[in-house]
Computed example of a mutant assay.
Amino acid sequence: MSGFLGEFFGTMVLIVLGVGCGAGVNLRKTYAHGQNWMFVTLAWGMAVTFGVYVAAHFGADGHLNPAVTIAFATFGYFPWTQVPGYLLGQFLGAFVGAAIVIVQYYPHFWQTKSEADGNTVGIFATAPAIPQPFFNLISEIIATFIFIFALLNLGDFSAGLKPFVVGLLIMVVGQSLGGTTGFALNPARDFAPRLAYTVLPVPHRGNTHWEYAWVPVVGPIIGGLIAAGLERMI
């Protein structure tokens, strides 16, 4: 139960802070409107940092990410018995986090009346800068491989100042590899907020682009498996 609660609350905090940044940057009449990519990657990095801290406080490992959980379990870094609880916590936490952001920015969604104005699924989920599914998938595989391979070499990344190091890792991955697809790295981070944007009453909702949604789910899982498999081999 501690694993579920930790992953739920940790992922909720991750999404509130990360998707909240997306809302602030994109929606009209916010003080953060129009901020740059550095602002976005820094916010997501710190969102992961504090999500890991929250998860660890509740007794979880701070994965916050099905790609991490599945890769770690596949190659013996994490017990399979805990995988269902971790995955459930991650997806539910991400959905609730997205719902909180919708409430926080509700008047700004009303003011942002179209996709052209910024009311897009990109607030909640990722999208390719150039839509080419094969290369978009490769981008997510590479970015997640680098993230999880580095993560595996941090040891217990929920201890001490290591969550801050994980946040810096997320930030640099976003700055160096995230410009192609928005660096999902995390199926729960993309799928659940996209679902929230689809099913919750968001004013002037734009296209939810479910035709792309498989890429930020499949790509991170493949990238994570390659990273954990390589780490186990060497």
Results as ranks from 00 to 15, higher is better:
I148Y: 04
L225S: 08
G179R: 07
V103C: 05
T181G: 01
C21L: 10
Q132N: 12
G34F: 12
P133G: 07
A67V: 09
A192I: 03
T41Q: 13
T49P: 00
A184D: 05
E7W: 13
V54N: 03
T81P: 00
G51R: 10
V54M: 10
T49M: 12
A47R: 04
K29N: 15
T74A: 15
K29Y: 14
V103F: 14
S176G: 06
K162E: 05
A99F: 09
A159F: 05
G34I: 13
A159E: 13
R189T: 11
K113D: 13
G3Q: 13
A116M: 11
F8C: 12
R205D: 04
V217A: 10
R232S: 14
F39I: 03
K162I: 11
N26G: 12
F135T: 12
G118F: 09
A143V: 13
E140Q: 14
T41C: 13
L92C: 13
C21N: 14
I15H: 04
V121Q: 00
F72Y: 14
A116N: 07
W110M: 15
I222L: 14
S114Q: 06
V19K: 09
I221L: 15
Y77G: 13
G206I: 07
G122S: 03
A67P: 00
G76C: 12
W80S: 10
V202L: 02
G76N: 07
D190H: 02
V48G: 06
P131L: 09
L177T: 03
G6R: 06
V68R: 02
L17G: 03
V165L: 15
G229P: 01
M38A: 14
D61C: 07
V103Q: 09
I138H: 00
F145G: 01
T74R: 08
G179T: 03
T112G: 06
G174V: 09
A98Y: 02
T69L: 05
H108F: 13
C21P: 00
V165W: 06
L154T: 06
G229R: 10
G24S: 09
V52L: 15
T81M: 13
G178R: 02
A98V: 10
V202H: 00
F72W: 14
L154G: 01
A55R: 03
Q132F: 09
A150K: 01
V202A: 05
V165H: 04
P187V: 03
G45A: 10
F4H: 08
A227Q: 07
G223D: 11
G178H: 07
M233A: 15
V19T: 15
Y197D: 01
Q175H: 02
V40R: 03
F109H: 05
D61S: 13
F135Q: 09
V103E: 09
Y105D: 05
T180M: 11
G18V: 12
Q132D: 04
L27E: 08
L225V: 11
A73N: 06
Y212C: 02
L14I: 08
L169R: 02
I138C: 08
G34P: 01
T69N: 02
G89Q: 11
L14Y: 12
L64T: 05
V217S: 00
P201E: 11
M12Q: 11
V215L: 14
G62M: 10
G167K: 02
G3S: 12
